[in-house]
Design a protein around this nucleic acid. Structure first.
Lengths: 194, 194
DNA sequence: GCCAAGGTACACAGGTCTGTGTAACTAAAA
DNA sequence: TTTTAGTTACACAGACCTGTGTACCTTGGC
């Protein structure tokens, strides 16, 4: 973990492959046989590293729970840049929506642990927006952060079914309107730095 | 179909039960045995009415594709009322997100017909917004309709993971800001008719 | 050389799933 | 009464799933 040159462990390879297949094809659609076959290991080895498929699913979701990198850009640029990043990801052919929302949709309210991590993820994203809005001094950062997160999740859901990266642009424009309405000065209607 | 007093056919009962279980528990999570057992019929009878589970899934999604009732309220009230209706549905304990988004998330891009009907549904909803925005004479009804639909889908996704009907209120407030920004006069910040 | 850790091959238990085949039953229509 | 359409009970095929048991093999460290 410390050294980037460190050889990838077996556990890493299993998790990485499970991550890719679970995300692309769905958690229920992928069996442990498929994962081990894809890596070229025996199913026994997989079970030596993860006690059950449920444990592998939990590891998958935790693995997806990554914090955004710190940035030295201005709060407004960071907020609006979120939607540019979304648009880029929508364009990739291996994008298939939000893994947490998908997992909840797929596994239902049955599995409480899945829902818990999904809620934690969504809340962490909302708080990320909120921190930047506080920095900007807007009146009601909590409310606006929630609304920005609505635009993020809405564009993800829309792109999931429509495969249309323009959804991210529409969300960005809406976000700009909401920011300006909250008294935030936003430079130009489209990409001043371009 | 014409008379509301008409006795419910076997096919209706199957579809209705499949609808409820598919939506609540997930399509992959429910087998045809479960559906037939729930109704108290044999699995053979189910297969006499639907040639395959895939056909039943298709019928389920078509059954969910309902058009909004015509309304005599003003366009603005209709648009904002959408979010009030959402909030009501979020409060129900049998609400589990958008069946079309869930189906795409669950069945993946593999099944093209599922994606097709999901796209058709989302587009029909977007056009519903668009029609009302045209009536209001806004400058760019297509863009704003897309953005309102983003708020709808965003609040649905958020409520799915958080079980928080307040997401609909946040979406409604954002919708009001977007409408006002487009030059639409919106009466009061919260429920003038209350 | 020897040992121990971890991987492999492979069978298998026990469950679920979709879908079919078949013979008997029921009830309404003719 | 006879026919016919729909339903039932039930077994079963064939596939896939999670998870385990077991005996063998490979490899690096001592």
């Amino acid at each position: 973990m410390a050294s980037p040159h460190q050889k990838q462990t077996m556990k890493d390879r299993i998790l990485q492959t499970a991550d890719r297949l679970f995300y692309l094809k769905g958690i229920r659609a992928i069996g442990v046989d498929t994962i081990s076959a894809e890596i070229g290991i025996s199913k026994r080895t997989l079970y030596n590293h993860f006690p059950s498929k449920d444990a592998l699913i939990a590891a998958y979701l935790e693995h997806r729970f990554v914090q955004p990198k710190p940035s030295d850009r201005s709060p407004v640029e960071q907020i609006l840049g979120t939607f540019d990043a979304l648009e880029r990801r929508f364009g990739a052919e291996d994008f298939r929506g939000c893994p947490f929302v998908n997992a909840v949709a797929e596994l239902g309210g049955e599995d409480k642990s899945v829902k818990d991590i999904a809620v934690a993820f969504k809340e962490s994203r909302r708080l990320w927006f909120r921190d930047r809005l506080v920095e900007l001094g807007v009146a009601d950062p909590d409310r606006l952060a929630t609304q920005l997160q609505l635009l993020v999740d809405g564009s993800i859901a829309q792109d999931l079914v429509r495969d249309d990266p323009a959804m991210a642009r529409a969300a960005k424009e809406a976000a700009r309107v909401l920011l300006e309405n909250a008294g935030v000065k936003v430079s130009s209607p489209d990409g001043a730095k371009a």
